[in-house]
Design a protein around this nucleic acid. Structure first.
Length: 820
RNA sequence: GCGAAAGUGGCGGAAUUGGUAUACGCGCUAGACUUAGGAUCUAGUCCCGAGAGAUCGGGUUGGGGGUUCGAGUCCCCUCUUUCGCACCA
């Protein structure tokens, strides 16, 4: 069944490798500083070298590449770099499973993925590649850690941290996902562990991170980040224990303070022991022990009935001097606010539930508008709406709108409280008890405590000879010699920090290393920074909204304040692609067997077809299920384009009308494609090119081939096709006799005159319903349009015998006749 | 529970942002070419009704209401799906 190959047929398997090689040889995609041209930094999120590129990588990268190519043709000096986020757990897991060194596994994967990226036909400048696991890179990751340490942005603290028992490491808060608090990577429910760990002070930037006014990021990402940061305005109020110890609480409703009938503190609160009376000691300790042992999953289940225990201690409400009991309950979290709340059951649902359960007093002090007064024992639910204050001492009668401000002012005057803002965001835990990461450049000296490793001793290299089986301790700790060193301060014996850094630390600054990956005097060459930064367009998945995309913004702002970088934001414009699902509309996974392998598709259709189909098959920001039949249509289109450009055709006999129609469609398409590329609306780019191809085919049938207009259409067509399908466009450009590479051609200019129609179809409506269409000259005046509409046959049938009340003329579009 | 996004033919989707709904592609139907077709080409293809026919009428953007000369688009209510957060004081 072997079929004879037609030598004239479109054969991507031949032309694609040929052009890839030629582009590489000529350095077509090298981008260097050029002060004469406006720069454009196009960045797409770097892949993790997991083995090979899957279709999701192609979906993220190839449209981003097309957009970058478009910007280049529009006259920008575009840099489109690529690298590998090469540290991380999968390398260790693979190493354990296959008994190969994580380094070998990782770098073999990188080699393979580089080849795939080349095969994709990307405009990557490979001279700028960075690999985060390369000592030349992580030397500077460690350097950044030192800058943070020296500027009080990194600190070590013993705290209850999230621990993944499967990955055997701590996780940042952001890496714990879902209602059942699972590990972001492996899905195992996390547990709590008390450990001394390194943190970055991300919370110091909480307020600034909420400001998106300088960047063009999707609303969705802004919302996700804002909610993650979780800003609440309120007041901190100090209650005093009978022993005189202050207990600070945070409340968003200071106006309800006269209704506070008890206080609740978290089981981990430092004052639990001192508040507990001897007779309650046993019960309180038992409760605290249980609460601590429980996972957060069990503790934070929202529908769980509230538990708690009375400490036997009391505090004084600073508002009215009332003595109120202190309870311990796990519905109060040590990690938010101050770990203590004033409970106002009348006006807070959680406090209401708790008070009902334990028979505590419910004392209403706010009357929401329209509500009628009730006593506490008759309330069926908390009245959480704002309202006028009553039974509130000197502030009784304060209306809803002023309640908050006046109470805070009153408390401030008394020295009992002040206005504060609380954030949900927590500091970033960066310690990991794993081998395959950048070692934290700290030495512990018995004399001097944690001492930073001097800059000139970086990088702290990872040793190759380790046992990387996870034990819960860092593998570096178990190495015979690695951790033993001397104190940089006193020269005495000391031990290295054996934890490594979260890989999100590596990916927080990779866009800077691309600028000068071999630079030795700093993390990046300042001259390159000045020219290229900030990133103009950043593309990648939305799943990083509250992880990488918060970290990298924090990192940039922190570095700005240290004086390492300039500007307030690292990435000006962000665009997210959606997710490609399997053909069964389920998430792709090996176990489901619904994985689409891009290499097989390239073998069968060629990279250009795969690129074009990925741009065409769905809205880029939404993604959707794969359709293996759909790609045939895109393949067919490129084959037809090939034929249209390569087949000899008679022509030159076309009428002026045919020529005009061709040029109109051509320039209208150019206008649309330009706009769609700017908007990342890739599916309509391809659709428009298909439409224009159809029009050109028709024109050729009508004798347009061989005319100057045909030649113009061919050239513009290829230029518009070039970002989408770079190989076929380049090949056909050469065959057409084009000068140089098509990828360095300027983007064509729209001929507005050609695009404008001489005649338009005027829609005639009667009472808003389409009744006729009339062809009219383009500049027709309203009166004439009205006359033609009223005379049109289609309209007359519906107007006859009725009174014309009104005629609406939308110039160039339609006439609507309103009758009764 | 809170928040966000989406709902358009058999399917993926388009609609210049309030002005011809269903572009483009898949699939399907018929035909041509062919030893053959899961290749290629041509024509057709939202639904209902009438007509031999060209055509003609009616309906249609999850559902219901509203604003407007005119609504897929704006407003209100509602349903469904997806995602994010979830005892955050």
């Amino acid at each position: 069944m072997e079929k004879e190959k037609d030598p004239r047929a479109y054969d991507p398997a031949t032309i694609e490798p040929r052009w890839q090689q030629r582009w590489e040889e000529t350095g077509l995609y090298h981008s260097d500083i050029d002060p004469a041209r406006p720069k454009h930094y196009a960045l797409t999120m770097l892949p993790y070298p997991s083995g090979e590129l899957h279709i999701g990588h192609w979906y993220a990268i190839s449209p981003s590449d097309a957009q970058a190519r478009f910007m280049r043709m529009r006259g920008r000096n575009v840099v489109f770099p690529m690298g590998f986020d090469a540290f991380g757990l999968p390398a260790e897991n693979a190493a354990i499973k296959r008994n190969i060194h994580p380094k070998h596994w990782t770098f073999a994967n990188i080699e393979r993925m580089r080849g795939q990226l080349r095969r994709m036909g990307t405009m990557i400048d490979w001279r700028r590649e960075m690999v985060s696991a390369d000592p030349a890179y992580y030397r500077w990751t460690q350097w950044f850690f030192l800058q943070f340490f020296l500027n009080d942005l990194a600190y070590r603290k013993k705290a209850a941290v999230d621990w993944c028992p499967s990955c055997n490491t701590t996780l940042a808060r952001e890496q714990v996902i879902g209602d059942d608090r699972r590990c972001e990577r492996c899905g195992t429910p996390v547990i709590r562990k008390e450990l001394a760990q390194w943190f970055f002070r991300t919370t110091r930037y909480a307020e600034e991170l909420l400001d998106f006014s300088r960047i063009d990021w999707p609303e969705r990402v802004q919302t996700l980040q804002s909610r993650w940061i979780g800003r609440s305005e309120g007041a901190s109020v100090v209650f005093k224990t009978e022993a005189g110890d202050p207990i600070e609480v945070f409340t968003t409703r200071p106006d309800t303070i006269w209704g506070a009938t008890f206080l609740v503190i978290a089981p981990e609160h430092p004052l639990v022991a001192s508040l507990t009376s001897p007779d309650r000691k046993e019960e309180v300790e038992a409760y605290v022990a249980t609460a601590t042992r429980q996972t957060d999953l069990q503790r934070e289940a929202a529908d769980k009935e509230k538990t708690g225990v009375f400490t036997g201690g009391y505090v004084v409400n600073p508002a009215d001097g009332d003595r109120i009991p202190v309870w311990v309950a796990d519905y109060v979290l040590m990690s938010y606010g101050t770990g203590a709340i004033m409970a106002v059951p009348a006006h807070d649902e959680r406090d209401f539930d708790f008070a009902r359960r334990f028979g505590l007093e419910i004392r209403p002090v706010i009357l929401p508008e329209g509500a009628s007064p009730v006593t506490g024992d008759r309330m069926t639910e908390a009245a959480t709406d704002l309202g006028a204050m009553f039974d509130s001492g000197p502030l009784t009668g304060t209306p809803a709108g002023e309640a908050f401000d006046r109470t805070v002012a009153w408390l401030e005057e008394k020295g009992a409280g002040k206005r504060t803002v609380s954030f949900r965001l927590r500091d970033w835990l960066i310690s990991r008890q794993r081998y395959w990461g950048a070692p934290i450049p700290i030495v512990y000296c018995p004399e001097h405590g944690p001492v930073p490793v001097p800059e000139d001793q970086l990088p702290i290299l990872l040793p190759d000879d380790v046992e990387w089986l996870p034990t819960g301790e860092s593998p570096l700790k178990l190495h015979a010699t690695w951790k033993h060193t001397t104190c940089p301060t006193c020269g005495g014996p000391a031990e290295r920090e054996t934890d490594t850094m979260d890989t999100f630390m590596c990916s927080s600054w990779y866009h800077l290393r691309y600028l000068s990956p071999r630079y030795d005097d700093g993390p990046f060459d300042p001259a390159e920074y000045r020219y290229w930064m900030p990133v103009d367009t950043y593309t990648g998945g939305i799943e990083h909204a509250t992880m990488h995309l918060i970290y990298t913004r924090f990192f940039h702002k922190a570095c700005r304040d240290i004086g390492v970088v300039q500007g307030d934001e690292p990435m000006t414009k962000l665009r997210n692609q959606g997710i490609i699902l399997g053909e069964d509309s389920e998430k792709m996974s090996k176990s489901r067997g619904n994985v689409v392998a891009p290499d097989e598709l390239v073998d069968r259709y060629g990279a250009d077809t795969v690129r074009a189909y990925l741009m065409f098959f769905a809205r880029w920001d939404l993604g959707g299920p794969w359709n293996s039949r759909g790609i045939e249509g895109t393949s067919r289109w490129l084959r037809r384009v090939w034929s249209m450009f390569t087949e000899e055709s008679e022509g030159g006999t076309a009428s002026q009308e045919v020529i005009d129609r061709l040029r109109r469609k051509l320039h209208q398409t150019l206008k649309q494609v330009t706009r769609n590329f700017e908007d990342f609306s890739f599916n309509t780019v391809v659709a428009a090119l298909m439409e224009l191809h159809n029009e050109m085919s028709q024109s050729r049938t009508d004798g347009a081939a061989g005319t100057p207009a045909w030649r113009e259409a061919q050239e513009i067509y290829l230029k518009m096709l070039a970002p989408v399908a770079p190989h076929i466009a380049e090949e056909l450009w050469e065959r057409l006799g084009g000068q140089g590479s098509i990828h360095t051609q300027p983007w064509p200019e729209v001929d507005e005159k050609a695009a404008a129609a001489e005649e338009i179809t005027l829609v005639v409506q009667v009472n808003g319903k389409l009744r006729d269409r009339v062809t009219v000259p383009v500049g027709i005046d309203d009166d004439e349009a009205r006359r033609l509409a009223l005379e049109s046959e289609g309209a007359r049938k519906f107007v006859e015998g009725k009174e014309v009340k009104q005629v609406i003329v939308v110039p160039g579009r339609l006439v609507n006749i309103v009758v009764r």
